[in-house]
C-alpha cells in the first residue's frame, strides 16, 4: 500500500502545493462537513504543544471525525519505556490517521516506516513542521494572490527558527527574494544560505531593522528573539530591542504587505501593531485550521474533486 504520510513538504513540487492550497481554500469556504464521518484521528503528542494540537483536533472535529490521543507523554506507556514503534503499532489498530508531535528529530519519518496508517508530522524536535509551513504558504498565497516573485523579509531568530527554514525551502520554486534580518548571533545558518545559492534564490542579509529597510516587503515574517539562545547575554541585552516591530515602522511599507508570526509572540511585535491593516498573525493561525483540514484529507486519499463535490457540508 502506498504510504500517504506527510513527514515533510520540503520536496513538494508547485503542482502538489497548489493542490493543497486549493483544498485549503475549499475548507475555508465550507469548514464544517461530515466528510470524515466514521473516521478516527489519533493525536499523539509525545511533547506538549497546545496550539498545534487544538488546531489539528478542531480540523478533525469540524470534518466529522472522532479524535483519540494524548496530550502529554507522562500519562502514556512511553514513560514506562515503551518504544515509539510499539506505541505507533498499537494506535495503528485503532486510528485511520495519526497526527504526532515528538521531541526527537526524525521520529515522524520512523513512525511512517513502521505502520501503514498515514502519519502527519506535527513537529519533530527542531527538524520539521510541515503543517506550519503549509499554513504559512496558504497565508502568503491568500494575502498576495500568488506565491511568485515576492519579497519576503524574515526577522529575528533565523538560526534556530524552524519555521523560517521550512518556509525558505518550500518557496524555492517561486522565485522569491529573501531578506534575512537578524542579530549576528542568530543569523541564517550557512547551510540554508548554501541552499539558496544552489537553488538560485536571491537573498540579502542585514542587521538593521527600520522603517526604510522593510519598505519593500510583501511579507514580514517575524520570529521571537529568545534570551536562552544567546551565549553572550550582553549581546542579548544589546540586540533585544532592535528586532521589535513598532507601528511607526509601518509608514513606508507597501499596501499589500502582511505581517506573519508563527506565535506565540512575546514582545517582538508591539500590541498596537495588532490594529494595523498589515497585521495578519491571528488570521494566519486561523488559516492553520483550513491547511490542517486539507492535510488530513490528503493523507486519507480524499481528493480535491471529492471535496469540491462534497454533499456533507453543514450550514
Amino acid at each position: 500500500m502506498e504510504n500517504r504520510s506527510i513527514v515533510s513538504i520540503a520536496d513538494y513540487g508547485k503542482e502538489k502545493i497548489q493542490y493543497l492550497l486549493d483544498m485549503a481554500a475549499e475548507f475555508e469556504a465550507h469548514p464544517n462537513r461530515q466528510i470524515l464521518k466514521g473516521k478516527v484521528v489519533a493525536t499523539l503528542f509525545f511533547e506538549p504543544s497546545t496550539r498545534t494540537r487544538l488546531s489539528f483536533e478542531t480540523a478533525a472535529n469540524r470534518l466529522g471525525a472522532r479524535v483519540i490521543g494524548f496530550t502529554d507523554p507522562k500519562v502514556t506507556s512511553s514513560s514506562k519505556g515503551e518504544t515509539l514503534k510499539d506505541t505507533i503499532k498499537m494506535v495503528s489498530n485503532y486510528a485511520d490517521v495519526i497526527v504526532m508531535r515528538h521531541k526527537l528529530e526524525g521520529a515522524a519519518l520512523y513512525a511512517s516506516e513502521v505502520t501503514n496508517v498515514p502519519i502527519i508530522n506535527a513537529g519533530d524536535g527542531s527538524n520539521l513542521h510541515p503543517s506550519q509551513t503549509m499554513l504559512d504558504l496558504y497565508s502568503i498565497y491568500k494575502t498576495q494572490g500568488t506565491l511568485e516573485n515576492l519579497n519576503i523579509y524574515m526577522v529575528g531568530d533565523l538560526k534556530y527558527g524552524r519555521t523560517v527554514h521550512s518556509l525558505l525551502m518550500s518557496m524555492r520554486k517561486y522565485n522569491p527574494t529573501f531578506h534575512f534580518i537578524a542579530p549576528k548571533e542568530l543569523e541564517m545558518p550557512e547551510e540554508y544560505k548554501l541552499y539558496c545559492k544552489q537553488n538560485n534564490i536571491n537573498y540579502i542579509e542585514q542587521q538593521d531593522f527600520t522603517e526604510d529597510t522593510i519598505a519593500d516587503a510583501d511579507i514580514l515574517y517575524m520570529t521571537r528573539v529568545q534570551r536562552e539562545r544567546f551565549t553572550d547575554l550582553m549581546e542579548y541585552e544589546r540586540v533585544k530591542d532592535a528586532y521589535i516591530l513598532k507601528t511607526n515602522m509601518l509608514g513606508k511599507c507597501k499596501e499589500n504587505m502582511k505581517i506573519l508570526h508563527p506565535l506565540p509572540r512575546v514582545n517582538e511585535i508591539e500590541y498596537d501593531v495588532d490594529e494595523s491593516q498589515h497585521a495578519y498573525y491571528f488570521d494566519q493561525a486561523q488559516n492553520g485550521l483550513y491547511a490542517r483540514e486539507a492535510l488530513i484529507c490528503d493523507v486519507l486519499g480524499i481528493t480535491l474533486d471529492q471535496i469540491k463535490n462534497d454533499n456533507t457540508i453543514i450550514g
Binding site: 518504544t83 515509539l84 514503534k85 515528538h102 521531541k103 526527537l104 528529530e105 526524525g106 521520529a107 519519518l109 520512523y110 519533530d124 524536535g125 527542531s126 527538524n127
Partner: peptide, 30 residues
C-alpha cells in the same frame, strides 16, 4: 545528533552519501 530518533529507539540507522566526505542521516537530516 543526540536528539536524533536513531539514538533513542532500538532501530537501524540509515545514512546517505552526500559526497565522498559527507554522510547525511535519513532521519534527522544532519
Amino acid at each position: 545528533n543526540p536528539v536524533c530518533i536513531t539514538n533513542n529507539e532500538p532501530m537501524k540507522t540509515v545514512f546517505y552519501r552526500k559526497d565522498m566526505e559527507t554522510l547525511k542521516c535519513r532521519y534527522c537530516g544532519k
